[in-house]
Write a protein that binds this DNA or RNA. Structure first.
Lengths: 157, 157
DNA sequence: CGCTTTGCTTGCGATTTGCAAGCGAAAAGA
DNA sequence: TCTTTTCGCTTGCAAATCGCAAGCAAAGCG
């Protein structure tokens, strides 16, 4: 008589927990789109440069939602559409995403804008604080998240 | 007449580059074992709590080596065995791994030792600097990496 | 009413996974 | 020496996942 199902982790290591939740090629791209690009609908995610397949996108959104990383709410204007937004737990993935961006920009050939990378490395905490502040206010006003977020690319103090 | 093969990225985004290299359920666990647990041989990785299959371990080690994240060198004592060690590029994954550990420890049930998590959050840069220093000296003396790295769990200034 | 958009499902072949077994070379033990 | 064990790795195979195309109901739009 089992009670419920915390799908049984491979280990009790926190890194392993993280990897089991978003350790794949797609999940963090959706988080990136939410965090930095102001994307919030299925179609907007689908239109991302990487070209995620619709079935995978559906699966990842469900998974992220069931993990409490994103929230979904229907568009009152258009009943077909839903808006996705990051929860607190999702916003807290920003440091992970930023470190991965910095590493990728440093060691691989990418089209990363140098000023953004510079801000992320030299001004990490301010960038994260900005993202958090922006999302917090957005979740109060209820009118979706930030859109382009080229805010704190300029240094703070 | 194609020149070579930079396996063709899905996009030029640095996050995507990172995900294509280590965006799977296993690669970073190997990096963790190297960074924090002093493991350095095939068998030691295999003995990790998560129980990686040998074929996958072989594949990931090859992949990490071809990406320049780990280096392999034969054991002069035992010709069967090889030692793996992190390169500079691999050591620079420490911030990524640490953020994932912190996130996992914060939001999931894990067995993460609280003092280690505390050090990683409150004293992030010192922890990273310690790891780097430790690995740099190890790669000079040529006698493998750090072993238990419970060093900077105590705050610095 | 046709026509499009949105989010999602289905089908299907290809790739990747997880697990077990096996294997050669080297080391260790008798 | 001869046997056994260890190490890193390969193979086989079933299951799961992936990527791509097509389709589809519900809702908006003309």
């Amino acid at each position: 008589m089992t009670t419920k199902r915390p799908p049984a982790r491979r280990s009790a290591c926190p890194l392993n927990a993280s990897l089991e939740i978003f350790g794949d090629r797609w999940s963090l791209l959706i988080v990136r789109d939410l965090l930095f690009k102001g994307r919030k609908t299925f179609r907007e995610f689908q239109d991302s440069e990487e070209g995620i397949a619709t079935n995978i996108l559906t699966d990842r959104l469900k998974r992220l939602e069931s993990e409490g990383i994103v929230e979904r709410r229907k568009d009152p204007q258009d009943a077909r559409r839903s808006f996705y937004r990051l929860t607190e737990k999702g916003i807290d993935l920003a440091p992970v995403v930023i470190e991965m961006i910095v590493w990728g920009a440093r060691y691989e050939k990418t089209a990363a804008p140098p000023d953004v990378i510079k801000a992320m490395t030299e001004n990490r905490n301010a960038v994260i604080a900005d993202l958090r502040r922006c999302w917090r206010s957005a979740s109060q006003t209820d009118d979706a998240g930030p859109s382009l977020s080229q805010r704190s690319t300029r240094a703070r103090r």
